[in-house]
Write a protein that binds this DNA or RNA. Structure first.
Length: 491
DNA sequence: GTAGGGTTAG
């Protein structure tokens, strides 16, 4: 029992704390429902426990653990995999609290993203032992991660052997899996698998829509149409989603005329049309630069009594930012507010990006504040955009300032954030900037991110050229202990 | 977490 608490090298300290720890972890005082605030506080405590053992944190706080709270914390630690796994493992030894299947799934996802498959399968085994899984969702997660790690063959094997883990395949899990392959652009592979297994799983319209959408995604609209012809021949009816897939496919492959013709045909045949149909067309025309057409269709949507969604507004606002004018986009944003819509973080992000893009950084920052006042949490993309544009303009201090506000706030930086910031440090050719870049590099490694070799080399070269031999050596040491899977990631 | 529309910039 003792050794499982040893999550860092501070053995002595741990041993001293052990007896009280056991007590504290079991001790549940405040029975209030978990709030985002509580999750935020705990996540940032966990994250900043580099020097301080995790266990000590729990020792100073009495927490009422619930699956909901644990999931919230795991979600916040999404970009800090090793910490998340440490936290999950530690809590698994709690005397009274037991992890939910959902928390297992979250942690499996995190470990799989780190490509730490040993941990993934250990967690699956533990789930099974406790008879709370693995479930179809678990396998959806695992196969998706294998595919995105460039191991689609492994993913197929895992899917085909699901039943050996006590989880039977059915049409749903089949559809989920071919969708995973399609979304990762492995459409041919998905289609081949589909052809082999369609009888066994009794492929339905959903299966065909998934494959057709996959071919649309890789701009192979004719193949998509072929697949759908095959569907009709086998006696399955297309539905509204099928039509929306095709419409989107035409726009994606730049066949704007065909898309328009298809849209008109849908109208002529009095097809059902919904908010997705209209949003697809608005976005499609906008991306093609045909803003007048986009505006016309957006207004038509209102005229025929289809209520635009927040996503519809986001699509329209985004294309106005890109192909028209930010100020016109803000007019639509204000209209949206007047009609009582609540913008989400995507809405704010597209407006902020639009403002940044034309160099209106101060107004972008105003929208960031507005976002916070609206209780719409800025996410990592929001910060990344602002930091990127500050760095592009050479205002590195301002970029760093924004970066600091996220660390202390509720949004944790991800790999992109560090890459953007580090790249920014090379803009001014100052040796001080290189020191900051080096410190950021060390911080990102500490947080479990794996910088590219290019990033290391760039910083090392810079440091050597500016005579920072000692610091360069420190960076080298960091690099040498930073493989794909640093030792402390393992269980 | 069985399907369709809305987030970076290069």
């Amino acid at each position: 029992m003792t050794s499982v608490f040893l999550v860092s090298p501070h053995h002595m300290l741990h041993t001293c704390l052990l007896s009280s720890v056991k007590y504290t972890l079991a001790f549940t005082t405040i029975a209030t429902p978990p709030s985002e605030d509580e999750a935020a506080i705990l996540s940032s405590l966990i994250l900043n426990s580099d020097q301080q053992p995790l266990i000590q944190i729990f020792n100073t706080k009495s927490v009422c653990w619930t699956p909901d709270l644990v999931n919230k914390i795991l979600k916040r630690l999404w970009n800090h995999g090793p910490k998340a796994i440490q936290f999950f493992n530690l809590l698994e030894r709690h005397p009274t609290y037991t992890h939910s299947a959902e928390s297992f799934d979250h942690t499996i996802d995190i470990a799989a993203r780190l490509r730490n498959y040993k941990t993934v399968w250990a967690l699956v085994a533990r789930m099974r032992k406790r008879r709370i899984g693995p479930n179809p969702k678990t396998f959806a997660i695992i196969t998706e991660r294998y595919v995105s790690a460039g191991k689609p063959d492994k993913a197929v094997k895992v899917f085909l052997s699901m039943h050996e883990y006590g989880c039977q395949q059915d049409l749903n899990s089949f559809n989920t899996f071919i969708d995973v392959l399609c979304k990762s652009r492995r459409v041919e592979m998905a289609y081949n698998l589909f052809k082999v297994l369609k009888k066994r799983f009794r492929a339905d319209t959903i299966s065909y829509n998934i494959i057709a959408n996959g071919f649309c995604l890789i701009k192979r609209t004719p193949r998509a149409l072929e697949v759908l012809r095959e569907m009709v021949e086998s006696g399955l009816e297309p539905n509204l989603k099928t039509y929306n897939v095709i419409l989107n496919g035409y726009f994606k492959s730049g066949q704007v005329k065909e898309a328009w013709r298809f849209f008109m045909e849908m109208k002529r045949r009095k097809c059902m049309m919904d908010v997705v149909t209209y949003t697809t067309v608005v976005h499609g025309f906008g991306v093609a630069g045909e803003i007048q057409k986009a505006r016309q269709v957006f207004n038509e949507m209102l005229d025929v009594g289809i209520l635009p969604s927040v996503a519809s507004y986001n699509a329209f606002i985004q294309v106005l930012c890109k192909k028209d004018n930010v100020e016109n986009a803000i007019v639509v944003f204000d209209e949206m507010l007047k009609k009582g819509y609540t913008p989400n973080s995507t809405t704010y992000n597209v407006v902020i990006r639009g403002l940044c893009h034309v160099g209106k950084m101060d107004r972008a920052m105003e929208y960031l504040d507005k976002m916070k006042l609206d209780k719409c949490d800025p996410n990592v993309q929001t910060y990344n955009v602002i930091i990127r544009y500050y760095c592009d303009e050479g205002e590195i201090e301002k970029g760093l300032e924004v970066f600091e506000t996220m660390g202390s706030g509720e949004c944790l930086p991800n790999l992109d954030t560090y890459n953007v910031l580090i790249s920014g440090m090379f803009g001014r050719k100052r040796s001080d900037d290189l020191i900051v870049a080096g410190k950021l590099l060390i911080e990102m490694v500490d947080r479990g991110f794996v910088p590219r070799k290019f990033t290391f080399n760039r910083i090392l070269n810079g440091l050597l050229l500016t005579g920072n031999q000692d610091f360069a050596n420190e960076i080298l040491r960091v690099q040498s202990r930073c493989g794909r899977l640093p030792r402390h990631f393992r269980l």
